[in-house]
Design a protein around this nucleic acid. Structure first.
Length: 568
RNA sequence: CGGGAUGUGGCGCAAUUUGGUAGCGCACCUGUUUUGGGAACAGGGGGCUGCAGGUUCAAAUCCUGUCAUCCCGACCA
């Protein structure tokens, strides 16, 4: 049955809603695909549901092709499982927690690793059962500090999450590759542009991890790419360390007076050096998931700032904050503006350096005395660190870690994430199977996610013009949109007839059969709603002709009634 | 979490400064005319002005508190 606009639950809006900023959000609201129910929480109207269902269908087909089987977990979960893996605490404020009438703790699942792991543990116990890959398409709940962009970052959203279970690392690699390939097929079929970037595994644990980003200026993720094909999330960019140099013959370190030079800028000005010659020692406060606060110090080249996201990744699962006046009061040896590495270190403060700080490099840095800096301080001779932390900002022009050329920075929206979880969850939840020798071995896992509702926003954002949406064929709420224009009965009858002919061929149709609605309104709504192919049954009907309108190219041409079907 | 802005029929806004019966456009309903780019005329329905308290003869408007929403930022030592 065609979808009839005369009875469809739809009201298009002529003006942009005041609370929408992003174009895709405005259009989805105006064209009647979604309604806001609360901050970051949306109601799906018939048209929106149709687009979402199209995306889900493609995902399901490709999951099946990759050998994954669909299951469905509750979104409402008891605390236990999340307690075992530590995530009840680790997830922090982003977790929606609630209690039942008996005061038992529950949560609305932000993701389902634990449940999948426990399900496999529940039913399987032999290597013969593996590998197995399960997935679901489910609502997820995350109490985002700041929901934004409509469907782009919601507090409730739909995600396809898949998990693979293998007996060994080799199996995991295969499962991972199968999902990765499926993702490429899915995004190609959806007609969405994507870049695969190396990602930081972060709080999820595990090793290999890649993100699928859709390049977009409104993206929240910054990624880098090189002419040679390297691509990575900024959090995951590993700064290449230069070769260690000889210490032989380097001049001895010398402390000089540098009054009123508490910032890199003033120091550079006063000493006639460049910012890159200086070593800036940044004091950061780490807050552990349990809420414990401690300080660390990181030496980075003075011409760079700390990248908070990279720092968070480097010190995960701790949160990273700037050290406050309070923090400094506890460590009077730290002279703000003149902090430098100290022999033996500061009591209770670990000292890390940037990867560029290698043996034989010489630096101008704070002397830990007000108004004094030390010049020619050589790493490996005059100071040492407790380790390397790569937390300095990445800049356009920096070399790619694999030598494939200078990096360029771009923004993207994360639409998919694949990674090799390894044994973190299997170990925590004791998922083991018997191998062929009858010995218990821990299963290794992979986890693979696609943001379904986010994809609706990404596709809308990438496929629109000033008049409205223009869906890719694969996700359009209908294959063809038929407008009955004018007041003549024959126009409506013809539109009706064509609609049923398309339906008989298996095509889906939206039919604008609204009586007493002016053509201008109908054309405007057709453009707003964004089905890529529009057929207009109007004054041409008298001559057995209709107008075929390609919404994407804007091309319109008159075709004989009996050839309409050939236009699609 | 920090900063900024805003809450008035379904949507977009005005009236708030200077307290005095809550208004406009869109949408909706009825009728007549109109029908290939968001029609015209006439008539009509719909709002305890986010919520709670206070001041006042009188509060959308002033005061206090509270809730919500949107945007920006997340600390450049």
């Amino acid at each position: 049955m065609p979808i009839r606009l005369s009875s469809l639950f739809l009201r298009t809006l002529r003006e942009d809603p005041a609370d929408a900023e992003v174009d895709s959000h405005k259009l989805l609201l105006r064209a009647g695909y979604i309604r806001r129910a609360a901050a970051g929480i949306y109601t799906w109207l018939p048209l929106g549901l149709a687009v979402k269902a199209k995306i889900e269908a493609i995902v399901r087909e490709e999951m099946a092709a990759a050998g994954a089987q669909e299951v469905f977990f509750p979104a409402l979960l008891p605390r236990d499982a999340y307690e075992v893996t530590g995530r009840w605490t680790e997830y922090g404020d982003n977790l929606f927690r609630l209690q039942d009438r008996r005061k038992n703790d529950y949560l609305l699942a932000p993701t389902h690793e634990e449940m999948f792991t426990l399900l496999v543990k529940d039913l399987y116990s032999s290597y013969k059962d593996l590998p197995v890959c399960l997935y679901q398409i489910q609502n997820k709940y995350r109490d985002e500090a700041r929901a934004r962009g409509g469907l782009l970052r919601g507090r409730e959203f739909v995600m396809k999450d898949a998990y693979s279970f293998d007996i060994d690392d080799e199996g995991l690699k295969k499962s991972y590759q199968a999902q990765r390939d499926a993702y490429e097929r899915i995004f190609k079929r959806l007609g969405v542009e994507y870049v695969i970037v190396k990602a930081d595994a972060g709080a999820m644990g595990g090793s290999a991890s890649e993100e699928f980003l859709s390049p977009s200026p409104i993206g929240e993720d910054t990624f880098v790419r090189s002419p040679g094909g390297y691509a990575a999330n900024v959090e995951a960019v590993k700064t290449p360390a230069p070769e260690a140099r000889s210490i032989e013959g380097l001049p001895a370190a010398e402390v000089r007076d540098t009054p009123n030079s508490s910032t890199i800028a003033t120091l550079v000005e006063a000493a006639g050096i460049t910012a890159a010659d200086t070593l800036k020692n940044v004091v950061l406060a780490l807050v552990s998931p349990e809420g414990k606060r401690s300080l660390v110090m990181v030496g980075i080249p003075g011409d760079r700032e700390v990248d908070t996201k990279r720092a968070e990744a480097a010190f995960s699962p701790n949160e990273v904050e700037q050290a406050t006046e309070e923090d400094f009061k506890k460590y009077p040896e730290l002279v703000k503006g003149y902090i430098g590495p100290k022999a033996g270190g500061f009591e209770g403060i670990k000292y890390y350096v940037d990867p560029r700080v290698v043996t034989g490099t010489s630096w101008v840095t704070g002397a830990n005395v007000l108004g004094k800096h030390v010049f020619g301080l050589v790493y490996g001779r005059d100071f040492e660190a407790d380790g390397i932390k790569d937390i300095a900002e990445v800049r356009a022009g920096d070399p790619a870690p694999d030598g494939s050329g200078p990096l360029e920075l771009a923004r993207g929206i994360e639409i998919g994430h694949v990674f090799q979880l390894g044994r973190k969850y299997a170990e925590a939840l004791d998922l083991k199977v018997l191998d062929e020798n009858g010995k218990l071995v821990t299963v290794t896992m992979g986890s693979y996610g696609i943001g379904i509702t986010r994809l609706v926003a990404v596709l809308a954002e990438a496929n629109r013009d000033e008049k409205g949406l223009i869906w890719p064929d694969a996700v359009s709420p209908a294959d063809v949109y038929i407008v009955a224009a004018g007041k003549e009965e024959e126009n409506y009858a013809a539109a009706e007839k064509i609609a049923y002919e398309f339906e008989a061929e298996g095509k889906t149709v939206i039919l604008d059969d609204r009586p007493k609605v002016s053509p201008g309104v109908k054309f405007g709504d057709a453009e707003l709603i964004g089905v890529p192919y529009v057929i207009i049954c109007g004054r041409g009907i008298a001559n057995n002709e209709v107008d075929f309108w390609n919404r994407r190219t804007g091309e319109r041409r008159t075709v004989p009634l009996n050839l309409v079907a050939l236009q699609l």
